[in-house]
Design a protein around this nucleic acid. Structure first.
Lengths: 146, 146
DNA sequence: TTAAAGAGTACTATATTAGTACTATAAGAG
DNA sequence: CTCTTATAGTACTAATATAGTACTCTTTAA
């Protein structure tokens, strides 16, 4: 259904929460409690996002996580790709040799185009926007072609 | 990875092929052979799309399938929804009561907005465009909000 | 030195996806 | 009228992905 996974969804919830206080340091336990998510799950997400470079972590007592960049500079694509790997609507728009039909497939190029558009949409959304109460305005226009 | 399933992908290949000859009647066996896809799989897809109202079917000798509407009037969303059910990037943008966080989730509205945009992109792409050799032109513009 | 916190690893249950096989039914050809 | 071709319906299996959890190790500040 063209869905992101539930874990990724939780990940965006966690990041959006952190984006509201970019100054603060958040521990996994605090986040889990504040957001009502299972601690183990939150831990897993934080670890993964740290590995992807989205978060700084500091250990020890009074340790925790914080964003590596200001929330308006982090796009949703980055977050999704950190948690799910490269974004591809179809196999062929992701990597070669996954489909088998590839060489002869007459619609591959068009799928790649669609993938690019969706990628663009998600790139335009920043973490700051995602965390915002205001409704986001993103429009689409038909540019040309047939 | 925000991906459609491989079966759905095959479905679009099949439909795009049929869209090039909207007059013709295609049997499952022919399509499977022409596209190099497994017959059983093609059969499954055709049945499902017929049930969803995208195809007419006629049985018996010289039977087969054809599109119920001209290819430029069939949007990609319809095809995806016929094969995968309602389109929802997140659980909460799909149906109530799937997430648990729903009531308190601060970013639900924004996800719903993103979902709407992606829905819009796929709605703008017709089967005729998908089947076309020409590169499609779809642009995105930032309209407002923050 | 101890307690709080992240890092690393491994595991299990469930759901989804992909692919296939078999039987029944309909309709045209001869 | 019956044979052949084709769709309709159903059911099943294997592989993969997802979700959630548990446990141990390491770091660091009080």
């Amino acid at each position: 259904m063209l869905k992101i996974s539930k874990l990724t969804d939780y990940g965006t919830v966690v990041l959006a929460h952190m984006a509201r206080r970019p100054d603060r340091l958040f521990s996994a336990a605090h986040l889990a409690q504040e957001l009502g998510l299972p601690l183990s799950t939150v831990r897993k997400l934080l670890k993964q996002m740290t590995g992807a470079g989205l978060l700084y972590s500091s250990r020890g007592q009074r340790g925790g996580y914080c964003l590596t960049r200001p929330p308006q500079e982090i796009s949703l694509v980055e977050v999704l790709e950190a948690l799910e790997g490269p974004l591809g609507v179809t196999d062929c728009s992701l990597a070669p040799k996954l489909c088998g039909q590839e060489a002869t497939c007459p619609i591959r190029n068009n799928w790649r185009g669609i993938n690019g558009v969706i990628h663009g949409v998600l790139q335009q959304v920043s973490l700051k926007q995602l965390a915002s109460d205001q409704t986001m305005g993103i429009g689409i226009e038909q540019a040309g072609g047939l």
